[in-house]
Protein backbone atom coordinates (compact mmCIF):
# COMPACT_ATOMS: atom_id res chain seq x y z
CA UNK A 1 0.00 0.00 0.00
CA UNK A 2 1.20 3.44 -0.90
CA UNK A 3 -0.16 6.69 0.48
CA UNK A 4 -2.61 8.78 -1.48
CA UNK A 5 -1.16 12.05 -2.72
CA UNK A 6 -0.64 14.79 -0.13
CA UNK A 7 1.20 18.09 0.17
CA UNK A 8 4.16 18.38 2.50
CA UNK A 9 5.12 21.48 4.43
CA UNK A 10 8.09 22.13 6.66
CA UNK A 11 7.23 25.26 8.65
CA UNK A 12 9.88 27.58 10.09
CA UNK A 13 8.48 27.80 13.61
CA UNK A 14 5.60 26.78 15.85
CA UNK A 15 3.36 29.70 14.86
CA UNK A 16 4.00 28.81 11.22
CA UNK A 17 2.97 25.23 11.92
CA UNK A 18 -0.16 26.31 13.75
CA UNK A 19 -1.04 28.71 10.97
CA UNK A 20 -0.69 25.99 8.37
CA UNK A 21 -2.91 23.67 10.40
CA UNK A 22 -5.47 26.42 10.97
CA UNK A 23 -5.51 27.32 7.31
CA UNK A 24 -6.40 23.92 5.96
CA UNK A 25 -9.88 23.36 7.35
CA UNK A 26 -9.13 20.09 9.06
CA UNK A 27 -7.39 18.53 6.06
CA UNK A 28 -3.94 18.87 7.59
CA UNK A 29 -2.06 16.63 10.03
CA UNK A 30 1.05 17.43 11.99
CA UNK A 31 3.82 14.93 11.29
CA UNK A 32 6.19 13.99 14.09
CA UNK A 33 8.28 10.87 13.75
CA UNK A 34 5.66 9.25 11.56
CA UNK A 35 5.80 5.91 13.35
CA UNK A 36 2.02 5.66 13.54
CA UNK A 37 0.96 8.21 10.96
CA UNK A 38 3.31 6.73 8.34
CA UNK A 39 1.65 3.30 8.28
CA UNK A 40 -1.78 4.90 8.47
CA UNK A 41 -0.96 6.99 5.42
CA UNK A 42 0.26 3.94 3.55
CA UNK A 43 -2.81 1.95 4.49
CA UNK A 44 -4.81 5.00 3.39
CA UNK A 45 -6.56 5.03 6.75
CA UNK A 46 -5.37 8.63 7.17
CA UNK A 47 -5.80 10.84 4.10
CA UNK A 48 -4.73 14.38 4.95
CA UNK A 49 -4.27 16.81 2.09
CA UNK A 50 -1.37 18.41 3.92
CA UNK A 51 1.32 17.12 6.24
CA UNK A 52 2.89 19.74 8.48
CA UNK A 53 6.26 18.38 9.52
CA UNK A 54 6.95 19.56 13.06
CA UNK A 55 9.72 17.07 13.71
CA UNK A 56 12.45 19.59 12.84
CA UNK A 57 11.18 22.56 14.81
CA UNK A 58 14.02 23.50 17.15
CA UNK A 59 11.65 24.94 19.76
CA UNK A 60 10.07 21.51 20.10
CA UNK A 61 13.31 19.54 20.22
CA UNK A 62 14.81 20.77 23.47
CA UNK A 63 14.84 19.36 26.97
CA UNK A 64 15.07 22.05 29.64
CA UNK A 65 15.59 21.91 33.39
CA UNK A 66 12.99 24.23 34.87
CA UNK A 67 13.88 23.60 38.49
CA UNK A 68 10.87 21.72 39.83
CA UNK A 69 10.16 20.08 36.51
CA UNK A 70 11.60 19.19 33.14
CA UNK A 71 10.17 20.67 29.99
CA UNK A 72 10.51 18.21 27.13
CA UNK A 73 9.75 19.41 23.63
CA UNK A 74 6.95 17.68 21.74
CA UNK A 75 9.29 16.63 18.93
CA UNK A 76 11.85 15.03 21.25
CA UNK A 77 12.26 11.40 20.33
CA UNK A 78 11.75 8.49 22.68
CA UNK A 79 15.40 7.54 22.25
CA UNK A 80 16.53 11.06 23.23
CA UNK A 81 14.51 10.70 26.43
CA UNK A 82 15.85 7.20 26.92
CA UNK A 83 19.41 8.50 26.72
CA UNK A 84 18.83 11.68 28.74
CA UNK A 85 18.57 10.22 32.26
CA UNK A 86 16.97 13.42 33.53
CA UNK A 87 17.89 14.16 37.12
CA UNK A 88 14.85 13.51 39.29
CA UNK A 89 13.06 12.05 36.29
CA UNK A 90 15.11 9.00 35.36
CA UNK A 91 11.85 7.10 35.31
CA UNK A 92 11.18 8.85 32.01
CA UNK A 93 14.20 7.02 30.59
CA UNK A 94 12.90 3.73 31.98
CA UNK A 95 9.57 4.21 30.29
CA UNK A 96 11.14 5.33 27.04
CA UNK A 97 13.51 2.39 26.99
CA UNK A 98 10.64 -0.07 26.71
CA UNK A 99 8.70 1.63 23.95
CA UNK A 100 8.64 -0.60 20.86
CA UNK A 101 12.15 -1.02 19.39
CA UNK A 102 15.10 1.34 19.32
CA UNK A 103 14.61 1.97 15.59
CA UNK A 104 11.10 3.19 16.32
CA UNK A 105 12.28 5.17 19.33
CA UNK A 106 14.83 6.92 17.13
CA UNK A 107 12.03 8.51 15.17
CA UNK A 108 8.91 8.41 17.29
CA UNK A 109 8.29 11.52 19.40
CA UNK A 110 6.65 12.09 22.76
CA UNK A 111 4.29 14.70 21.35
CA UNK A 112 3.36 12.51 18.43
CA UNK A 113 2.60 9.61 20.70
CA UNK A 114 0.37 11.75 22.91
CA UNK A 115 -1.45 13.28 19.96
CA UNK A 116 -1.98 9.90 18.34
CA UNK A 117 -3.45 8.66 21.64
CA UNK A 118 -3.23 4.93 21.20
CA UNK A 119 -4.87 3.53 24.36
CA UNK A 120 -2.03 1.05 24.81
CA UNK A 121 0.83 3.53 24.32
CA UNK A 122 3.23 4.29 27.15
CA UNK A 123 3.21 8.07 27.46
CA UNK A 124 -0.58 8.42 27.80
CA UNK A 125 -0.28 6.17 30.86
CA UNK A 126 3.05 7.25 32.32
CA UNK A 127 2.54 11.02 32.14
CA UNK A 128 -0.75 11.14 34.05
CA UNK A 129 0.79 8.90 36.68
CA UNK A 130 3.73 11.29 36.94
CA UNK A 131 1.32 14.24 37.27
CA UNK A 132 2.78 15.81 34.15
CA UNK A 133 1.34 18.69 32.17
CA UNK A 134 0.81 18.84 28.42
CA UNK A 135 1.62 22.15 26.77
CA UNK A 136 -0.46 22.86 23.70
CA UNK A 137 0.11 25.56 21.09
CA UNK A 138 -2.75 26.95 19.03
CA UNK A 139 -3.71 30.12 17.23
CA UNK A 140 -4.31 31.86 20.58
CA UNK A 141 -0.91 30.88 21.97
CA UNK A 142 -0.04 28.25 24.54
CA UNK A 143 -2.26 26.52 27.06
CA UNK A 144 -1.60 23.73 29.50
CA UNK A 145 -3.64 20.67 30.35
CA UNK A 146 -2.96 18.10 33.07
CA UNK A 147 -1.80 14.93 31.39
CA UNK A 148 -4.68 13.01 33.00
CA UNK A 149 -7.18 15.16 31.19
CA UNK A 150 -5.47 15.28 27.82
CA UNK A 151 -6.60 11.96 26.35
CA UNK A 152 -10.34 11.73 25.83
CA UNK A 153 -10.64 8.22 24.48
CA UNK A 154 -9.09 5.90 21.95
CA UNK A 155 -7.30 8.09 19.43
CA UNK A 156 -9.11 11.14 20.78
CA UNK A 157 -7.52 14.02 22.67
CA UNK A 158 -7.98 17.52 23.92
CA UNK A 159 -6.27 18.86 20.78
CA UNK A 160 -8.21 20.93 18.29
CA UNK A 161 -7.35 20.50 14.63
CA UNK A 162 -5.16 23.59 14.69
CA UNK A 163 -3.28 22.69 17.85
CA UNK A 164 0.02 20.97 18.58
CA UNK A 165 1.65 19.32 21.56
CA UNK A 166 4.68 21.57 21.87
CA UNK A 167 5.99 20.24 25.17
CA UNK A 168 5.34 18.15 28.23
CA UNK A 169 6.32 19.28 31.71
CA UNK A 170 7.25 16.49 34.04
CA UNK A 171 7.69 17.28 37.75
CA UNK A 172 10.78 15.90 39.38
CA UNK A 173 10.28 13.08 41.84
CA UNK A 174 11.22 13.50 45.48
CA UNK A 175 14.14 11.36 46.61
CA UNK A 176 11.81 9.09 48.58
CA UNK A 177 9.28 8.66 45.80
CA UNK A 178 8.27 5.19 44.66
CA UNK A 179 7.60 4.57 41.01
CA UNK A 180 6.32 1.31 39.55
CA UNK A 181 5.57 0.68 35.92
CA UNK A 182 4.62 -2.66 34.44
CA UNK A 183 3.16 -3.70 31.16
CA UNK A 184 2.38 -7.01 29.55
CA UNK A 185 3.35 -7.32 25.89
CA UNK A 186 2.97 -10.52 23.89
CA UNK A 187 6.43 -9.93 22.56
CA UNK A 188 9.16 -7.35 22.72
CA UNK A 189 8.16 -4.15 21.03
CA UNK A 190 4.44 -4.85 20.81
CA UNK A 191 1.81 -2.60 22.27
CA UNK A 192 0.84 -4.01 25.67
CA UNK A 193 -2.34 -5.93 26.45
CA UNK A 194 -2.36 -4.46 29.94
CA UNK A 195 -0.31 -1.81 31.69
CA UNK A 196 -0.20 0.09 34.94
CA UNK A 197 1.82 2.85 36.57
CA UNK A 198 2.12 3.86 40.20
CA UNK A 199 3.68 6.91 41.82
CA UNK A 200 3.89 7.28 45.58
CA UNK A 201 5.57 10.56 46.47
CA UNK A 202 4.74 11.37 50.09
CA UNK A 203 6.84 14.56 50.15
CA UNK A 204 4.73 15.98 47.35
CA UNK A 205 1.61 14.37 48.76
CA UNK A 206 1.08 12.43 45.56
CA UNK A 207 -0.47 8.97 45.40
CA UNK A 208 -1.27 8.00 41.88
CA UNK A 209 -2.20 4.70 40.29
CA UNK A 210 -3.19 4.44 36.66
CA UNK A 211 -4.13 1.54 34.48
CA UNK A 212 -3.72 1.49 30.69
CA UNK A 213 -4.16 -0.55 27.54
CA UNK A 214 -7.91 -0.35 27.92
CA UNK A 215 -10.50 0.16 25.22
CA UNK A 216 -10.33 3.90 25.89
CA UNK A 217 -8.01 6.27 27.71
CA UNK A 218 -6.00 5.11 30.75
CA UNK A 219 -7.93 5.33 34.00
CA UNK A 220 -6.90 6.34 37.48
CA UNK A 221 -7.57 4.17 40.52
CA UNK A 222 -7.57 6.98 43.07
CA UNK A 223 -9.10 5.24 46.07
CA UNK A 224 -6.75 2.31 45.78
CA UNK A 225 -3.83 4.71 45.33
CA UNK A 226 -4.80 6.51 48.52
CA UNK A 227 -5.05 3.21 50.34
CA UNK A 228 -1.61 2.20 49.09
CA UNK A 229 -0.27 5.54 50.33
CA UNK A 230 -1.52 4.64 53.80
CA UNK A 231 -0.97 0.91 53.99
CA UNK A 232 1.61 0.14 51.31
CA UNK A 233 1.42 -3.17 49.50
CA UNK A 234 -0.99 -4.51 52.10
CA UNK A 235 -3.64 -2.51 50.31
CA UNK A 236 -3.12 -4.55 47.20
CA UNK A 237 -4.77 -7.90 46.71
CA UNK A 238 -6.62 -9.70 43.99
CA UNK A 239 -9.85 -8.55 45.61
CA UNK A 240 -8.93 -4.91 46.14
CA UNK A 241 -7.56 -4.49 42.62
CA UNK A 242 -10.56 -6.23 41.11
CA UNK A 243 -12.87 -3.97 43.06
CA UNK A 244 -10.98 -0.87 41.92
CA UNK A 245 -11.12 -2.03 38.33
CA UNK A 246 -14.84 -2.81 38.65
CA UNK A 247 -15.38 0.87 39.32
CA UNK A 248 -12.89 2.34 36.86
CA UNK A 249 -13.23 -0.15 34.03
CA UNK A 250 -16.58 -1.91 34.32
CA UNK A 251 -17.54 -4.74 32.00
CA UNK A 252 -14.13 -6.12 31.15
CA UNK A 253 -14.12 -9.67 29.85
CA UNK A 254 -12.44 -12.12 32.24
CA UNK A 255 -9.12 -12.54 30.44
CA UNK A 256 -8.57 -8.79 30.09
CA UNK A 257 -9.55 -8.36 33.71
CA UNK A 258 -7.05 -10.99 34.76
CA UNK A 259 -4.30 -9.22 32.82
CA UNK A 260 -5.14 -5.80 34.23
CA UNK A 261 -5.32 -7.10 37.77
CA UNK A 262 -1.88 -8.59 37.21
CA UNK A 263 -0.59 -5.34 35.70
CA UNK A 264 -1.73 -3.25 38.66
CA UNK A 265 -0.39 -5.69 41.23
CA UNK A 266 2.98 -5.98 39.52
CA UNK A 267 3.35 -2.23 38.98
CA UNK A 268 2.77 -1.69 42.69
CA UNK A 269 5.10 -4.54 43.56
CA UNK A 270 7.81 -3.01 41.39
CA UNK A 271 7.33 0.35 43.08
CA UNK A 272 7.86 -1.16 46.49
CA UNK A 273 10.75 -3.44 45.57
Amino acid sequence: MKAAAFEYLKPQDVPGAVKALAGSAGDAKPLGGGQSLGPMLNLRLARPKLLVDVSRLEAMRTIEDKGAFWRIGGAVTHSAIEDANLAGCTVMSDVARNIAYRTIRNRGTIGGSLAHADPAADWPLALPALAATIVIAGPAGERSVPAGKFMKGAFATELAEDELVVAVEVPKLSPGARWGYWKFCRKTGEFPEASAAMLMDPERKLARLWVGALDGAPQSLDALAADIAMRGTQAVSETSVSAALDLAVPGQEPVSRRLHVTAVRRAVQKGFN
Binding site: P39, L43, R186, K187, G189, F191
Partner: peptide
Protein backbone atom coordinates in the same frame (compact mmCIF):
# COMPACT_ATOMS: atom_id res chain seq x y z
CA UNK B 1 -3.88 -7.68 7.77
CA UNK B 2 -0.74 -6.01 9.06
CA UNK B 3 2.13 -7.07 11.27
CA UNK B 4 0.51 -5.09 14.08
CA UNK B 5 -2.14 -7.80 14.24
CA UNK B 6 -0.21 -10.73 12.86
CA UNK B 7 2.58 -11.43 15.30
CA UNK B 8 5.82 -13.03 14.27
CA UNK B 9 8.43 -14.13 16.75
CA UNK B 10 11.33 -11.71 16.89
CA UNK B 11 14.89 -12.10 18.11
CA UNK B 12 13.88 -11.86 21.76
CA UNK B 13 11.26 -14.60 21.36
Amino acid sequence: STLADYLLPGPTE
